[in-house]
């Protein structure tokens, strides 16, 4: 525990020192929100979105941006870099276990995701009148499970990729798919219905987030699928993870 605390503190310092990545991770979704929110027509209630504004409808997809960036992109490439450079191996020769470093990276990934989500939700509420999630419990649950599913996938990538390059080769398509099905590139109402339905079940489960944010409780099946992905990818990562 002692070693973990010190490693976490050091890793947090390194994380804060990398300002461009930090700002992108935490601020990018909010920046996109603000840009879209400045367009007046996107702030008008629209029957296409059951009488909500486009900004409200699109906000959950913006959550996907951070989740995808941190979960399937940053986390695996940081871990693969640490492995490739022998940081994990060196740690294995000391009384500290390299798992402490992995845990510290997970904590930082979660902290970044949480900060980004809070910033987005608060700015959306204050600047564009997007209500706070109407179903807080369902939203929290959908957010936790979606995050867990993506982080587990990220860990799985880090587990099977031997080098930083290999990690990126796996992470980039996964990132693009996550963003696409999450309705980031094209808002989901423009996607063919079948694609949008697939997106309900790909992590982080944007439909569950949207449901909980705008009113109803998320569908149990959506949540269950996220839980299954999180557990199976996590178990796979634990089994396959190599420290060197």
């Amino acid at each position: 525990m002692h070693a973990f605390r010190n490693i976490l503190r050091t890793e947090a310092r390194l994380y804060l020192r990398d300002l461009p990545t930090l700002l992108t991770t935490i601020g990018l979704p909010t920046l996109i929100l603000v840009v879209l929110g400045l367009i007046p027509s996107l702030r008008k209630p629209d029957p296409t979105f059951d009488g909500q504004t486009f900004v409200s409808y699109f906000a959950p997809s913006l959550l996907v941006v951070t989740l995808a960036m941190v979960g399937v992109n940053t986390l695996p490439s940081v871990l693969a870099t640490y492995r490739e450079r022998g940081v994990l191996r060196r740690l294995a020769t000391t009384p500290a276990h390299p798992a402490a470093l992995l845990a510290a990276q997970l904590v930082l990934a979660l902290a970044g995701i949480l900060a980004s989500a809070l910033l987005l939700i608060v700015v959306a509420r204050l600047a564009f009148g997007v209500p706070f999630p109407r179903h807080p419990l369902g939203f929290t649950l959908a957010f936790i499970l979606g995050t867990a599913a993506l982080l587990s996938l990220g860990l799985l990538v880090a587990a099977v990729a031997r080098t930083t390059k290999a990690a990126q080769a796996l992470a980039v398509p996964l990132f693009l798919v996550t963003m696409f099905f999450g309705g980031v590139y094209l808002p989901r109402f423009l996607l063919p219905d079948v694609v949008a339905r697939i997106g309900d079940y790909t992590p982080p489960g944007v439909q569950a987030l949207l449901d909980a944010w705008t009113g109803t409780s998320p569908q149990p099946l959506h949540l269950a699928i996220m839980a299954v992905i999180a557990v199976s990818a996590g178990a796979g990562a634990a089994k396959l993870f190599r420290w060197e």
Binding site: L14, R17, D18, Y82, R85, G86, V87, R89, R90, T93
Partner: peptide, 9 residues
């Protein structure tokens, strides 16, 4: 260890 590095920052 041989070729064991540290984080850049």
């Amino acid at each position: 260890l041989q070729e064991s590095q540290l984080p850049d920052r």
